[in-house]
Every structure is written in structure tokens, then in C-alpha cells.
Amino acid sequence: MTAAQTVFGSLKHFEKGHVDVIDDNPKHYVLSNVFEVASKSKPYEKVAVGQNLRYVIEAIRAEGTSPWYTASHDESALIMDGTVEIHLIKPEKALVPDSKEGTVKLDSEPKGKKMGWIKAWRGHMALLPKGAAYQFRSAAPAVLLLQTIKGDHTIERWADICQTE
């Protein structure tokens, strides 16, 4: 029996798939590749690669130290390449109302109690709990997918990232 050889993608090496159209519009399949998207993004740009009504999956190039963020709901981060630290603070008071959806960028580190931190790398999924403030830190370029709701900082550049013909 030959040894298993599982193929993952990375910023340095990825291959993008394709849509072969028979009787349809390739745009309807919204095909992109998270590593290609991150390879062309600025650090911590939140580029939507999936949108299901108000919900989004954002591809993020993690590089250096991010701003502090929070959200009124849970979010999750899945590391697809590289290593990322996630630092968490429980703010003294709620920073966003429950009615506000999506990631909210904070002007600075909020006052509050340190909750702890996580060091995660490829394959690891982290909870970004409702109401917590969080910051990403990555010494080298990394890629993460954020499960969240479309917000003020979600970037849509579908025509640039998706197969159109």
C-alpha cells in the first residue's frame, strides 16, 4: 500500500480549480481560491470569498499585528496556512450593540480583562467569542478564513477573484 499523500494549499503553492460550463454562467459558481486571494491582499483585508445572504466567509492575509476587533456574535477563525496568535480581552463594557452585525474594528486596545491567547497553525479552528475583543499577530504571512456576518469592513471584489468566463 502506498503512503497517503494529502495535498494542502499554501500561499507559496496553490493550484486553482475551474468551472467547465455546459449550459450556465460560470459567475454563478463564484469560484475563487483563498490562497490566491490572500496572495493579492493587504494584511488584514477582509475579503469575502463566500456569501450566503448576510453570512460571509472572509479570506484574510494575516501578517504583522492586526487592529483590535470585536463582534456582537460569535465568529470563528480557521487557519489555512502559517501560524497566527490570537489575543483576547473581555471588555469592561459591551463595545457594540447586539443589533450590530459583522466584525467591528476598534480604534485601540480596549480596557478590560485579559482572557488569554491562542497560538494556532494550519488546520486549527479558534472561537472568537461574542463580545470579546481580539487581535491577530503573525510574524510571517499566514492565511485564515473567518466565519462571520457581512459587516462594515467586509470587502467584495468578486470580479477580481472569481472565474468570470
Binding site: K16, H18, V19, D23
Partner: peptide, 18 residues
């Protein structure tokens, strides 16, 4: 049931199914 497309997805690809 008429054919509409074939979608080949590789590691890191994201695609929608309408």
C-alpha cells in the same frame, strides 16, 4: 436533470452551488 457545468475544486478553492 440536464447538464449545466462541471466544477473542479482544488485545495483552497471556494465555490457556490446555486
Amino acid at each position: 436533470g440536464n447538464p449545466r457545468a462541471k466544477v473542479t475544486m482544488k485545495a483552497g478553492d471556494v465555490a457556490a452551488m446555486p
